[in-house]
Design a protein around this nucleic acid. Structure first.
Lengths: 134, 134
DNA sequence: CAGCATCCAGGCTGATACTG
DNA sequence: CAGTATCAGCCTGGATGCTG
């Protein structure tokens, strides 16, 4: 039992939970409020493959607006998850890449993505079922 | 290298990425758009310890409003992550608990929580540094 | 106790137009 | 190319009052 990494993590969650009885002012909220928006995760996933220029990101995340891309990139940079490098060419080009901190986030993120993929079907079924009941 | 679970997961992310070149209509977006709001994760964490009644949840997540608690619980139920049981007592009591699907979510969630906890300091420093630069 | 209905302010978000 | 600026709609989310 103690050898299972998933079980180990869940136990860690229990221990963590005792430190925040009111679920306030905890790292989860401070960090997730930033990361859990509509676009951050998608940008990080895109940058996981390789550094991207602004236009590349815009083309890959097809339905993001320029405004939201700029804004989200800035927020991710502020949190130290991505790095921004400007090349003073004409026309100018800017490259975004994951920082070491950002790369370290790929591990938990991957687990999350894998879970969503595995359980997408079950969730969609549950939604339909729930829709019928209502 | 191939034995490292984290490395394995990141490789999974790369493979997954190839299926969604435009990062659209993928499970991540469909699922995360629901889970990545302000309260879902906190409710799941609270329910991870034990089933809760409505009022218990309200007291544990001190700054959630009644409206948001009701709404988020309903959404989580619709997605099949939690189960709702009504006891026809007077006054009535309602119990919420994680479904098997919800429990399976604890593994990736724990990894995420652990990461936020470990890197909270680095992120806060990055924010301050970024604030000075601007 | 557990919830619903209503109202309302504020922020998120996209569309559009413009700049170095 | 890589942004900035402005405007307007929508939806989140809180406050309040009421019900079974």
């Amino acid at each position: 039992m103690s050898g299972d990494p998933a079980t180990h993590l869940v136990h860690g969650l229990q221990r963590w939970r005792q430190r925040y009885p009111a679920l306030q002012n905890c790292a989860v909220r401070d960090v997730l409020d930033q990361l859990a928006d509509k676009w951050s995760v998608l940008i990080i996933i895109a940058l996981a493959a390789k550094p991207h220029r602004f236009g590349e990101l815009k083309r890959e995340i097809v339905d993001i607006s320029q405004r939201m891309l700029t804004q989200t990139l800035r927020d991710l940079q502020a949190d130290g998850l991505i790095e921004r490098e400007v090349f003073p060419t004409t026309p100018p080009s800017v490259e975004y890449r994951l920082s070491p901190l950002g790369k370290s986030f790929l591990a938990p993120l991957s687990a999350l993505v894998a879970w969503t993929e595995e359980n997408h079907g079950a969730i969609r079924e549950a939604r339909e079922e729930f829709g019928k009941a209502a």
